[in-house]
């Protein structure tokens, strides 16, 4: 396994939506090794606040440069937003598995909720390279939070109705599937667990292959701390680890519980 634990120079941080930024850094070897769906465990502070790294989806790879997209939710993301060209960030990766973009399907249905949009620009690029048909159902709190960068076939849904469909991305997709029959569809979803659970239910009800990219608290990112379990539907091990067994899971393989929505 090729893996890196390196301080990389930041190239730029640019706003892509309200409170939401794209940070680009220069990482020649890492960028060559990364695949869509994988993540990076990033250290944002030299001090002990935050003490631990936080996992970020790889949003895109542009030549020798990597990009992550994040919304400011706490100290670590606030520190990232303040990074300037010449600063460095500590990156551990590539980590986790990839989206099944090489599997046999005709239409990619992307479902993204909030900052769950993060892993999809990279996926879209690989899907376009394989000439897949793409529909992206993008849910956001409001029009200001919509991140369009690098996506394709957009169907926008907002919680407050300020843009596009008034409701969730999953409801928007369900309405779409009521009137359209995409060719051999496969769903790729990332977002809050409530949204993933709704996507899981939709996929089961409509018999569509579906994979979910999960977020979890985690410390190490490499399977050591055992801090990121998700319950499995079956098998000898009760829990899978989001970091090493995921973050992408077949929606039939995992179980969400109420505590996941707290």
């Amino acid at each position: 396994m090729t893996a890196y634990n390196t301080d990389y120079p930041v190239i730029s941080v640019r706003p892509v939506a309200d409170e939401t930024f794209a940070l680009r850094f220069h990482a020649p070897e890492l960028s060559a090794a990364l695949r869509p769906g994988q993540f990076l465990n990033i250290l944002t502070s030299e001090l002990y606040d935050p003490l631990l790294r936080r996992p970020y989806s790889i949003s895109n790879v542009i030549g020798e440069e990597c990009e992550i997209i994040f919304t400011i939710v706490g100290k670590g993301t606030a520190l990232l937003a303040e990074k300037r060209s010449g600063d460095t960030i500590g990156v551990l990766g590539p980590l986790g598995n990839t989206f099944g973009y090489e599997k046999d399907f005709g239409t990619a249905i992307i479902v993204a909720g909030g900052i769950g949009v993060a892993p999809f620009p990279f996926l879209v690029r690989e899907l376009q390279r394989r000439e897949k048909s793409i529909h992206t159902f993008l849910g956001a709190r409001n029009a200001g939070r919509v991140v369009r960068d690098g996506l394709a076939g957009l169907h926008i849904a907002t919680d407050d109705g300020s843009e596009g469909y008034h409701g969730t991305a999953v409801a928007c997709l369900d309405a779409f599937l009521g009137t359209h029959e995409p060719d051999r569809p496969r769903i790729f979803a990332c977002g809050p667990n409530l949204m993933l659970r709704a996507t899981q239910e939709l996929a089961a009800r409509r018999g569509i292959a579906c994979e979910l990219s999960l977020e979890s608290e985690m410390a190490c990112g490499v399977g050591i701390c055992q801090g990121c379990p998700i319950e499995r539907t079956e098998g000898e091990r009760k829990y899978a680890l989001v970091c090493t067994d995921g973050p992408c899971f077949d929606s039939r393989d995992i179980i969400f519980h109420e505590h996941h929505h707290a």
């Binding site: 606040d49 003490l51 985690m218 410390a219 505590h259």
Partner: peptide, 18 residues
């Protein structure tokens, strides 16, 4: 041992609970 149900870790001031 399967371990405990999530959530299993929380970062706290200069520390972590597991």
């Amino acid at each position: 041992r399967q371990g405990n149900a999530p959530r299993r870790i929380v970062e706290t001031a200069s520390g972590m609970l597991n």
